[in-house]
Amino acid sequence: MLLAPSDSEAEVIVPEPSTEEFRPKMNATAVDVYYGDTHAVKKVDLPILEGDVTALIGPSGCGKSTLLRCFNRMNDAIAACRVEGEITLEGRSIFDAEIDVVELRARVGMVFQKPNPFPKSVYDNVAYGPRIHGIARKGPEMDAIVASSLERAGLWQEVKDRLQESGTALSGGQQQRLCIARAIAVDPEVILMDEPCSALDPIATAKIEELICELRGRFAIAIVTHNMQQAARVSQRTAFFHLGELVEYGRTEDIFTNPVQERTRDYITGRYG
């Protein structure tokens, strides 16, 4: 599947050609997002590839979070927000009347900027998703899911003796990994992360980055980040946004070593942002 170049901007880059294996798990086509009169995302085409980490970078307020939240329709809850264009998951539109938003969010999980564990026990935090989706019942089945999710989130060793303690009693980094465990407990296909490390210290950040690298392959991951090094370290694809537009999309090494667009070069060399 090929992405058509946006005709609104002549210089916009055609996303990677199909020379390599090009498997978009999710695909946004000509997406526009408005908050009332504010045009926050302008005609954006962006694929999220299976088994890869896609980084969304760009200066504050350029619409990265807004676009990310479109992928699991989190913007539905904002009354003033209007989304136009098409987004597909495995080729099917996520705005399809047949697609239940609850099911969509089970398939497309999300990790937020500020760690937001439920004020419940560590166990209940992880078990909540599987429970409401009926994936597992109480008991050993659920215990196994909780344990494996915490394991995959790299948190098991630290919390295995305090599963009944409140999730909010953990450190910031642990809370964020708990949130990741909560997201992967329902076994999603895509994980969206909105600046997951911006509230964390460098050591916790390093752990999360490590975790993202481990989770790659198993899930399609889209991550918004402010941190250039982070994008370079964890992602295979990078999309650079500016003022609501997708300026450049490509393989991460290309974007960082050899950007086509002037604006991209200025941004990654720290000229603005």
Partner: peptide, 20 residues
């Protein structure tokens, strides 16, 4: 943020209210 978290794992509006 609690509502977002619940919605993010796929809780329906009623579940968000009743559970959280």
């Amino acid at each position: 943020s609690i509502r977002e978290a619940a919605r993010g794992v796929g809780a329906s509006p009623l579940q968000v209210v009743a559970h959280h």
